[in-house]
Amino acid sequence: MWWSAAHLLFLAGVLAFVPVFPGLWRAAGVRGGRGTAVGATALIGLAGAAAVAVQAGIDLVVGFLAADEDAMSELFERVQEVPGVVPLVYTVVPVLFWLGLLALVTLLAAFRRDLMPGWTPPLVLVATVLMAVSLDLLPVGGLCLGLALLPVRRALSGARR
């Protein structure tokens, strides 16, 4: 039960970033090469978010189907034996979520200081490192991400209008 609850919360958290990437892109309002860099970074982050969401979905399905931990291990092995699944869903592409987010806030801090404070990228980096160190630190990392992105909330609200 806790496995499923934790994965549902994690999935909800990742899905909450789906509007953040294009929202920051639009709110940045930069053109030319800068706009291309911001847009590409937002798309990279979205690709990573999609991979993380698929990973969480697989984890949920395995958790619902498996009777015990041994059965979960067997199901995970079968999923991961499918060619391409490991890099696309578990190793390479999911990292793009974190790298894309860090790169995006860094670009915005450089291009739009009025939109993104300079302390945002270091706080996003701290959050990313905390969550990479231990899954037990996911709530602390999530809090850091929330604090890091709090100043741009108004900008995102204005970009949707």
Score class of each variant (00 low, 15 high):
38 V>C: 14
39 G>I: 02
93 V>G: 09
149 L>V: 12
133 V>L: 09
42 A>K: 02
127 A>R: 09
159 A>V: 05
33 G>W: 15
71 A>T: 03
72 M>P: 00
114 D>F: 03
21 F>Y: 07
109 A>N: 12
13 G>I: 05
97 F>G: 03
17 F>M: 14
86 V>Y: 00
16 A>M: 09
51 A>V: 00
59 D>R: 13
84 G>I: 13
104 L>K: 12
127 A>W: 06
80 Q>I: 04
80 Q>S: 05
64 F>I: 14
28 A>R: 00
108 L>W: 02
89 V>H: 11
28 A>K: 09
131 M>R: 10
38 V>N: 01
123 L>Q: 00
95 V>Y: 06
94 P>N: 12
100 G>H: 08
27 A>Y: 06
160 R>I: 15
48 G>I: 10
17 F>T: 02
13 G>D: 01
114 D>L: 04
161 R>I: 04
140 V>Y: 07
116 M>Q: 04
58 I>L: 15
62 V>D: 13
161 R>S: 14
38 V>F: 14
51 A>C: 08
59 D>A: 15
13 G>L: 01
144 C>A: 15
147 L>F: 10
98 W>Y: 05
67 A>E: 15
22 P>W: 02
92 V>H: 06
41 T>M: 10
34 R>Q: 15
139 P>H: 09
99 L>I: 01
84 G>F: 14
67 A>R: 15
30 V>Q: 06
19 P>A: 10
120 T>S: 15
129 V>N: 04
76 F>T: 07
150 L>N: 04
129 V>K: 07
55 Q>G: 14
80 Q>G: 13
99 L>S: 00
117 P>A: 12
54 V>P: 09
52 V>A: 11
36 T>S: 11
109 A>M: 09
54 V>L: 12
14 V>K: 01
121 P>Y: 14
157 S>V: 15
15 L>M: 06
151 P>Y: 08
11 L>K: 00
94 P>I: 11
22 P>K: 02
141 G>E: 06
97 F>T: 07
65 L>N: 05
52 V>D: 03
155 A>W: 08
37 A>T: 11
116 M>D: 12
143 L>K: 04
27 A>C: 02
136 D>P: 00
13 G>R: 01
23 G>T: 01
27 A>F: 05
107 L>Y: 14
128 T>G: 08
117 P>M: 00
149 L>W: 00
77 E>G: 15
20 V>L: 01
96 L>Y: 00
39 G>E: 05
4 S>I: 15
